[in-house]
Computed example of a mutant assay.
Amino acid sequence: MSHLGHMGEPDKRTLRRELLAVRNRLPAGDVREAAAALAARALELDELAHARTVAAYVSVGAEPGTLALLDALHARGVRVLLPVLLPDNDLDWGVYAGEGSLARVRHGARTALLEPAGERLGPDAVTGADAVLLPGLAVDARGMRLGRGGGSYDRVLARLERAGGRPALVVLLYDTEVRARVPAEPHDRPVHAVVTPSGVRRFPRAAR
């Protein structure tokens, strides 16, 4: 890792702790309201309006809620791919077929995740997506995303890069999580847009 990486990582860890602490204090009603607003805003995105396949994820706890958005995309006839966490932290994928198609899976001591219960499509399935919804904790004015630190989505982004895929990269956040700057590594890729309950912000410098 570069010297920059050594310096940047503790900053990331501190910022992650602070952001997660704020999320965990959110009342359940606020989380529900934000999820409904996020779905409405995200559905206005051209990148999702014209997508045939969207790779997404199921939110847990106080994360910005995604289920309302998953259901709306599914109702539109969009093929929605959801991740399945593998033992090495990589992601396999399955198709979302409504809330009844999800199974609660516990991965060691972590929070149980809701994952698609059907057929596994393989880690490369994400390369066929027109848009990828990324979880995160913050994004900055450059479009740089602060992830949760598990590395799963770094692998997804690297896989897209290798495949020559250029899907729209969209992160879903609360309004307070759009920051002036977050720590970034040289290999980090900017997202194309952030959706928050109050609106959408695009990052035109994120080359497609």
Rank of each mutant, 00 (worst) to 15 (best):
G143I: 05
R201G: 02
V178I: 14
P183T: 10
E47D: 13
A51G: 12
L45M: 14
N24L: 12
V22E: 11
R106C: 06
G100E: 15
L85W: 02
E63L: 06
A68E: 15
E18N: 11
S59K: 03
H187M: 09
G77M: 09
R23T: 11
L114D: 14
Y57R: 05
G199P: 00
P10C: 13
R17I: 00
R32F: 09
A158K: 09
A42W: 07
V84A: 02
A193V: 08
A125V: 08
R52M: 05
A21T: 13
T14F: 13
V171Y: 00
G149A: 04
A72E: 14
A55S: 12
L146P: 06
L114H: 15
D71W: 05
L48H: 02
R205E: 15
R110L: 13
E18W: 08
A72W: 11
D46Y: 04
V58C: 15
E99D: 12
T196L: 06
V105I: 13
G94Q: 01
E177A: 15
N89T: 14
G149V: 07
E119V: 12
A184L: 09
G118D: 03
L70R: 09
F203T: 02
G147S: 06
A184E: 12
R205F: 06
D124Q: 14
G118N: 08
A180P: 11
V171M: 00
V195Q: 07
